Each structure stands twice: as structure tokens, then as C-alpha cells.
Amino acid sequence: MTLPPKVTDRAFDRLSEIGAADQGKALRIAVEGGGCSGFQYNIVLDDVTPDDLVLEGSGEKVVVDSVSLPFLTNAVIDFTEELIGARFVIENPNATASCGCGTSFSI
């Protein structure tokens, strides 16, 4: 069954901390060709467009464009704080391989 990506409370909380909605922005998760494994994630604060799937929580928005959406079926968008730094991460069950940087994957 095809399900849209899920966004964790921790990711929405981080968007609140950085004031994304206050700036009129949403967190855009896009999949692009490239990277060391074939595809890579592009994660940026951006404007919402009519083509976007909008995921909302805690007054914040995460958006995915229609081209990227099939690559993110059943994925989980999270925020993590580790020794190497804090970042948004994507747990993607569609990825058959990924690289150490965590932003590149293959299907």
C-alpha cells in the first residue's frame, strides 16, 4: 500500500524552534538525481506550491513535490542531534542502499 511519508513530532518541534512558519516557510523534502548512490535528498526551507503534498503538525509544514513523492512512500522524516551535528534525517524503506553521508541513496 502506498502511504505518504510521516513526519515525527521531533522534526515538527525543530521547525518550530527555527521559526519556519513564522517566516512563511515550510521544510521541503525533495529527491534529485545525483549523489554517490544515484539519488540524493535536498532538504531546504521553501515556499509551498500548489503541486506539493503538505504534511502539517505543531503549526509547521513539511512539503514534498509530486515528482519526489513516489521515492518517499512510507518514509519517516525525523530530526536527530548527534555528536557530528544536528540535522533532519529520512528513514526511507524504498532505499536499497545508501552512503555514509546519509543524503544519498539508491532504489
Rank of each mutant, 00 (worst) to 15 (best):
N42P: 13
D52R: 04
L55M: 05
G34N: 09
G34R: 10
V31K: 08
G57A: 09
I43W: 12
G57C: 09
K61C: 07
V54N: 14
I43K: 08
E60Q: 11
D65S: 07
Q40R: 15
L27W: 02
V63I: 12
G33N: 14
K61V: 08
E60M: 10
A26P: 03
A26S: 07
E60S: 04
V48C: 03
D65V: 05
Y41I: 00
E56S: 09
E60D: 06
P50T: 01
Y41T: 01
V63E: 08
G57V: 10
K25F: 10
L45S: 11
A30K: 11
T49V: 07
D46F: 05
A30L: 08
V54E: 15
P50S: 04
D51N: 13
L45M: 13
G33M: 09
G57E: 09
V54S: 14
V64K: 01
I29Q: 12
E60V: 06
G33T: 13
V31Y: 06
R28C: 12
E32N: 10
C36N: 03
N42L: 14
V64M: 01
Q40C: 15
G38Q: 01
V44Q: 12
A30W: 12
G38C: 01
R28F: 10
K61Y: 07
E60T: 06
A26H: 01
V64E: 02
Q40Y: 15
E60K: 05
L53K: 11
K61P: 05
Q40W: 15
K61G: 04
G34E: 08
A26T: 03
F39H: 11
L27M: 05
N42C: 14
V63C: 12
V31S: 10
F39N: 11
P50C: 02
V64C: 01
E32S: 08
S37E: 04
V31H: 08
V62C: 09
I43P: 04
A26V: 05
V54W: 14
D47F: 13
C36S: 05
E56M: 10
D46H: 10
T49Y: 02
D51C: 14
V63L: 09
V31E: 08
S58Y: 15
L53T: 10
S58P: 13
G59W: 01
G35M: 01
D52M: 07
E56I: 07
G59T: 04
I43H: 07
V48G: 03
A26R: 00
G33D: 14
S37F: 00
E32K: 09
V62F: 11
V64F: 00
D46A: 13
G59D: 03
F39G: 09
I43E: 06
P50V: 00
G57M: 12
L55G: 03
V64I: 00
Y41P: 01
E56W: 07
Y41A: 00
V31Q: 08
Y41W: 02
V64Y: 00
N42W: 14
G59K: 03
